[in-house]
Amino acid sequence: MSFDFHEPASIAEAVALAARFGTEARFLAGGTDLLVQIRRKRVAPRHVVSLHRVPGLDTIDANGEIRLGALVTHRALERAPAFQGALRALVEGARVVGGHQIRNVGTVGGNIVNASPAADVVPVLLVLDAAVTCVGPNGAREMKLDEFLLGPGETALRPDELLTSIRFPAPALRSATGFLKAGRRRAMEISVVCVAVWLSLDGDDRCAGVRISLGAVGPRALRSCDRPVESSPRTVSRSRTSAHRQPTGGFSWKHSFRARSGQR
C-alpha cells in the first residue's frame, strides 16, 4: 500500500480533493476499516483524505432533533448522556463493535459509508428513521438512511461526496429503543444477526408504533417492520421491559430471536 496523504481543514476543501482525485481517493475517518481493506488489498487508494482536521464533524447535538457529526466515535455514542434513556439502543449497538480500541477510533459515519450488512449501529439508526447529509461540489443533499444503503459496501454516496452528518427526530415522550446481537463469541464479533427495535406508546399505554430492523441477514440492514400495531396495555408493558433490558456481555440470542418472531 502506498498513497498520498491529505489533511483538508474544511468540508469544502475535503470535497474538492475528492472531486479532483475521484475514485483514486478515499476519505479517512477513524481508519479502522479502511486500513484493513487496504491491507487485504480490497481497495488501493492513491490518495487518502483524512478528515481529522475538519472542524465540527465530531459533535453530538441533542438539543431537540439529534444530529451526529460523521466523525462521532462509537466511544462517544456509548458515553453520550443524551443516549442513556430512550435512545439507549445507540449505546447498545455501539458498545458491541470490536474492542475498546476500535470503538475509541471508529466513527459512525465510517460505519455507515462502509455499508457492511452487519454494521451494528446501522439497524438502530434505521429504526430511528435517520437521514444522512452528503456534501458534494454542488452543495449538500439529504436522504433517508434507508435509501442511502444499497448493498454490501454499496451506498448512494457519489465519489466526490462526503457524508457529513446523520440526524433523526428527538425521541417521543413515551418511546424506547433496544438492540441485541448474536454471534459465536461474546465480544469482537461480527454479528450473525442483530436487531434494533423502536417502540412508542400512546396515552393509554397502547403501542402506538414499532419499527424493527435486522442486521446481517441480508445484503444490507433491513427495515423488517414499520407500522402502527394494535395491542393491549399488558403486552406493551412486557415489550418495554424487553426494550430496556441491558444485555450483559453485549447480547443474547434468545432475545434477538424473540424480537424477530414477535413472541412474548
Binding site: 496523504f5 489533511e7 479517512l28 481508519g31 479502522t32 486500513l35 484493513v36 491491507r39 487518502v48 483524512s50 481529522h52 466511544r75 470490536g98 474492542g99 475498546h100 480500541q101 476500535i102 475509541n104 477510533v105 469482537m188
Partner: peptide, 25 residues
C-alpha cells in the same frame, strides 16, 4: 487488523490499536 490488541497504545489517554492508525493521524 485490530483483532488481537497486542499493539495497543494510549492516544490522548484512550486505548487504540496502533496497527490501524496512520502515523500521520
Amino acid at each position: 487488523e485490530g483483532e488481537c490488541g497486542v499493539c495497543t497504545v494510549l492516544l490522548d489517554g484512550m486505548a487504540v490499536d496502533s496497527c490501524l492508525l496512520l502515523a500521520a493521524q
